[in-house]
């Protein structure tokens, strides 16, 4: 632009609203409580189209109907893909890199993102199962699963 006479300025700014408390929703609450109380991953079941799916929500992405039931699923998962995570969400180097994986379950649409543990060389197609925290340490979160380990 014309008429520039001084050094260009930048004004710092940040987001005032930096904290949120998210409502997880009725079926997700049951899902998280089943992890906490039973040490089990359950999937949403749509009575209308018969699909099981993860992550759970109180409606079906596929047929658009209401969903209000969780069902037990085979806890054995399959690694669909993985990557070694070296940077955190700020782009800073992690002191302890970890394997991130996308894990699917038998007869279930979708899957979960989680860590792999007790593994040196992950492979696509590898069978894994969840390792939970001690029950007294669980809070009702996906963080109650420490990682998935090879079977």
């Amino acid at each position: 632009m014309e008429n520039r006479t001084s050094r260009l300025l930048r004004y710092p700014g940040d987001m005032e609203a930096e904290s949120y408390l998210y409502t997880v929703g009725p079926l997700a609450e049951q899902f998280l409580l089943s992890i906490k109380n039973e040490g089990k991953i359950k999937a949403a079941y749509c009575k209308n189209c018969g699909r099981l799916f993860l992550p759970v929500r109180s409606f079906c992405t596929f047929c658009g109907k209401e969903v209000n039931e969780l069902r037990e699923i085979d806890q054995e998962g399959v690694v669909e893909s993985f990557s070694k995570v070296k940077l955190d969400s700020f782009g800073k180097e992690l002191k302890e890199p970890f394997y991130l994986a996308y894990i699917k379950f038998r007869n279930v649409e979708g899957g979960l993102l989680h860590k792999l543990g007790e593994v040196k060389e992950p492979k696509i197609g590898m069978k894994v199962k969840p390792v939970f925290k001690e029950s007294k340490e669980r809070i009702g979160s996906l963080e109650d699963i420490l990682y998935f380990r090879p079977i």
Partner: peptide, 26 residues
């Protein structure tokens, strides 16, 4: 990213592309 199902792992979002890339390349 989803606050309940995706953010808890604290990874740089480009790793979502990493997962997809490995799956596609394989």
């Amino acid at each position: 990213m989803d606050p309940v199902y995706e953010r808890f792992l604290n990874f740089h979002p480009n790793y979502l592309a990493s997962l997809e890339a490995r799956n596609y390349m394989e």
